[in-house]
C-alpha cells in the first residue's frame, strides 16, 4: 500500500537514495533481555527499479558482527542459516519478520533500551550502501 506514494515521490524529487531504486520502508530492533548475546533487526526493502537488487551484507554499529540470517522450521526443528545474499526482484518488497529472514546482530557492546537507534549499513551487490537508523521497540509493537 506504500508503493504508489513512494513511486510518485521518486518521480517528483529525485533524491540520490531513491535514484538507486531501493528504499528502506521499515526497520526496527525488538527489545531483548539485557544479557542477550545476540539481537535481531527486521527491515522492509522496496525495489522500485527495473533490475533485481541483491543485498549482500549488513554492518551494525555497536555489534561485533552482523549477518543475514534465515530461520526455518523443518520437521519440528528450528534452525538458523546464514545467507550470503538476498535478492529483491524489481517491483517487489522484501519484508523481514520473526521466523524467517532477519538480520542477526551479534555480541552487542551494550544492552539496548527502547527508543535507541541502531545504525545499519546495508551493502548491495553493486557496492551501493544504504544506511538506516532502526529504532528499538517492544516486541509487542510488531505487526
Amino acid at each position: 500500500m506504500m508503493f504508489r506514494p513512494i513511486v510518485c515521490a521518486a518521480m517528483l524529487i529525485p533524491l540520490p537514495a531513491l535514484a538507486e531504486s531501493v528504499t528502506v520502508v521499515d526497520a526496527w530492533v525488538p527489545m531483548a533481555p539485557p544479557t542477550a548475546m545476540a539481537h535481531v533487526a527486521y527491515i522492509t526493502l522496496q525495489n522500485d527499479g527495473t533490475e533485481p537488487r541483491v543485498l549482500t551484507g549488513v554492518n551494525a554499529d555497536g555489534y561485533a558482527m552482523s549477518h543475514l540470517h534465515e530461520s526455518r522450521e523443518t520437521e519440528g526443528v528450528a534452525t538458523m542459516t546464514m545467507l550470503h545474499q538476498i535478492e529483491i526482484p524489481p517491483g517487489s518488497i522484501l519484508m523481514m519478520k520473526t521466523g524467517g529472514l532477519h538480520i542477526m546482530l551479534m555480541r552487542p557492546e551494550a544492552p539496548i533500551a527502547e527508543g535507541d537507534l541502531i545504525t545499519l549499513s546495508l551493502t548491495f551487490a553493486n557496492d551501493e550502501t544504504v544506511t538506516v537508523d532502526a529504532p528499538v521497540k517492544a516486541r509487542d509493537a510488531e505487526s
Partner: peptide, 13 residues
Amino acid sequence: FNSCPDVCPFTLG
C-alpha cells in the same frame, strides 16, 4: 539457547 533472538523470544513471548 540465548543467542536466538529471532525465534526463541517469539516462542517465550
